[in-house]
Design a protein around this nucleic acid. Structure first.
Lengths: 234, 234
DNA sequence: ATTTGGTGTTTGCTATAGCAAATGCCGGTT
DNA sequence: AACCGGCATTTGCTATAGCAAACACCAAAT
């Protein structure tokens, strides 16, 4: 085998092993954070969770600690895990970092995306738009997330991707709590459409600008909601 | 207590609790990664580590899994933790992200730093320069790290700071393995000096540029070393 | 020299138990 | 009604045990 052929070989993939129980629990909790099924202020007690999930406490504890490590859960003074309530400044910081990192990923994606990649994104965006028409918040959130992470994956920057995931985990409960379906916009006005055009045109600058616009518009709405004083107790 | 006085109160600090054993182990391992005492390719077996540290395996396992979660350690197909060897592309991605995130922190720090902050940074930098004069790699690395994280802390962006720490943990073993003390430069030519001047002048653009220059110069040297084929076996 | 099979050891992962500290509940007192 | 004390329960954290799979080592066969 010549050196050139070695260079052309894909890297060896790790041998798939059955996922551990702790890994399964972690994924479920992580998805629950990103999708808002776990709400800000919720307490997660590993023994109780273990009972609910009908597993022993050790893997649940491990899963919770993983999520703490990536910022998705906070520990209180006693070591109990809680879903964080985002202060406005924290939310603002997270969104600022998303603008930068997701914008960077989009720019890179514009250099690397294939027509098939772009077609897949179009299909996802069509479902985002449908969710908007149907005023279906769950659908919009789910497909929007899929759209974003599909885009980011095109950039082939694994460290950045993991960072962005962590930001989504951190912001997920709050975003989902506050989210209302935006009014439908004219199809050509949606930032996703601008991003798709930029990807097709292999234009990194336009791709970044589209993502920035998307996140800034969306982020400003929620930032306003967060900055309001809490409603009087009903 | 009037609303204005409430706004002026510092946030309640969490009650300090004695750090758990797992937390202690985590900190030690993390510091070992950042400082290079753990080398790329090293295998970390939780039972053996527990014996060395004279603690039981559970907290060691928890500490290792935390470090896996933040990217500092990789798991192989069998679930064993290893200190990662950085491929050139991975190193490049990490440095690119550091340039962006640390640059951003420096720009923010330029807006927020007090004269006392800047004096403290000068003192740290003086020790960096001394380490260079003495050709003391350990001293340079230690003080340089202190300089960087002192700067980042001035930005008061906790999410960003945690991300940067994670990047340092990921790159620490490789950087320390390859590091050689750069030749001393004229004092005014060191990027830290440019950063200090930018902080004093409250100039975010110059601050960012100084950090970018620092990281790019340093990063290019190591990227070259990583890109070279491994030396023939001796 | 290489391959195969058997055996012992290692290792991750999970389950369980137990300790100490914190929390919650209830009754009694003011 | 509010406060206090006693007791039971909860909870994090750690230690230990055990299972299954993987690995390492060695001897025998080719």
């Amino acid at each position: 085998m010549s050196p050139a052929a070695m260079d052309a070989l894909p890297p060896l993939a790790p041998v798939d092993r059955e996922e551990s129980l702790a890994g399964k629990v972690y994924r479920r909790l992580r998805a629950a954070l990103m999708s808002g099924r776990l709400s800000p202020g919720q307490k997660l007690v590993h023994r109780l969770l273990a009972q609910e999930m009908q597993v022993s406490p050790t893997p649940v504890r491990e899963a919770l600690l993983r999520l703490v490590s990536e910022g998705g859960l906070d520990l209180d003074a006693r070591g109990i895990a809680w879903v964080p309530r985002l202060a406005p400044e924290r939310y603002k910081e997270i969104m600022e970092l998303r603008v930068e990192l997701e914008g960077r990923a989009a720019a890179r994606a514009a250099e690397l995306a294939t027509p098939e990649d772009i077609a897949a994104l179009r299909a996802i965006h069509a479902r985002v738009a449908e969710g908007r028409l149907r005023n279906d918040a769950r659908m919009v959130l789910t497909e929007n997330e899929l759209f974003h992470f599909h885009t980011i994956a095109l950039a082939r920057m694994p460290v950045l991707q993991r960072m962005v995931e962590s930001l989504w985990v951190q912001a997920g409960p709050t975003i989902n709590l506050l989210f209302t379906v935006p009014r439908p916009v004219a199809p050509q006005d949606h930032p996703h459409v601008a991003l798709l055009a930029a990807l097709a045109a292999r234009d990194p600058v336009a791709a970044r600008a589209a993502v920035e616009r998307d996140l800034r518009e969306h982020g400003a709405v929620l930032a306003d909601m967060l900055a309001r004083p809490a409603a009087p107790a009903g």
